[in-house]
């Protein structure tokens, strides 16, 4: 795990997932939701969040989100799927996205 390259870590996290659901979860479980690259592993996400935001991570849950099927007339299309990572922070830790901007 410690062998994970810094280069890779910088690529793992794509964006914070900001939505009503994500805020609800954050309030309830001290979790932060990220969009991550589809082949990211939980240890990678954990390491990435710890190194980028300088916080302690308790655990990571991930799920693959299927892309929606969209139709344009007769033609059906498939949006890309993505991986969502629920990062559970250790008590007292916080990530402030706005401050980093």
């Amino acid at each position: 795990m410690s062998q994970l390259k810094q280069e890779r870590l910088l690529k793992v996290l794509l964006a914070p997932q900001i939505s009503e659901k994500a805020t609800y979860i954050a309030d309830k479980n001290e979790q932060v939701v990220f969009r991550v690259v589809s082949d990211a592993t939980k240890p990678e996400v954990k390491a990435a969040v710890e190194s980028l935001f300088n916080v302690k991570v308790k655990s990571v849950q991930t799920t693959n989100v299927k892309g929606k099927v969209k139709r344009f007339g007769k033609i059906t299309g498939q949006r890309k799927g993505w991986k969502k990572a629920f990062v559970c922070l250790q008590p007292g830790q916080e990530i402030n996205f706005a401050a980093g901007e």
């Binding site: 997932q17 939505s19 994500a22 805020t23 706005a98």
Partner: peptide, 17 residues
């Protein structure tokens, strides 16, 4: 705000922006 229904944006985020 993207990701929220109108009127459901948390107060904290409104204050930020």
């Amino acid at each position: 705000m993207p990701g929220f229904r109108p009127g459901k944006v948390p107060l904290k985020m409104i204050e930020q922006s």
